[in-house]
C-alpha cells in the first residue's frame, strides 16, 4: 500500500465541497426552471427551459461525471456525440418547420 496514492485512475480526487456546491447550483437552476415556466414568455419559455437544462447537464458532466478531469479524448468523444445529436435536430427541423 506504499504507493496507494498513485492509482491507475489518473484522477486528482475532488474534495466533498465541490459536489455540494454543484448540487446547490442544480437545485437553484431547478427552482429557476419552475419559476420561469410559471411566467408566460411565449415561445421563449421552452428555449429558456432547454437552456437551463443544458447548463445543468454541463455541471453534471463536468463535475459529477469527472469529465473535467478526464483525458482530452473523452471530451472530444462527448463533443462529437452531442454534435451529431444537434445535426439530427437541425436536419429534422429543416424538414418540419415548413409544414
Amino acid at each position: 500500500m506504499s504507493n496507494s496514492d498513485i492509482h491507475n485512475s489518473g484522477h486528482q480526487p475532488h474534495g466533498y465541497g465541490i459536489y455540494f456546491l454543484v448540487w446547490l447550483a442544480l437545485l437553484a437552476l431547478t427552482a429557476l426552471t419552475v419559476t420561469v415556466a410559471g411566467l408566460d414568455f411565449g415561445a421563449l419559455t421552452v428555449t429558456t427551459a432547454l437552456f437551463v437544462a443544458s447548463i445543468k447537464s454541463y455541471l453534471v458532466l463536468k463535475i459529477f461525471m469527472h469529465l473535467g478531469a478526464e483525458q482530452k479524448a473523452f471530451k472530444i468523444f462527448v463533443i462529437v456525440a452531442l454534435f451529431f445529436i444537434v445535426i439530427s435536430f437541425v436536419l429534422l427541423f429543416s424538414d418540419y418547420s415548413f409544414i
Partner: peptide, 10 residues
C-alpha cells in the same frame, strides 16, 4: 433533467 421541463412544465 430534460424530461422534467418538457413534460411537466409546458
Amino acid at each position: 433533467i430534460f424530461l422534467f421541463p418538457l413534460f411537466y412544465l409546458i
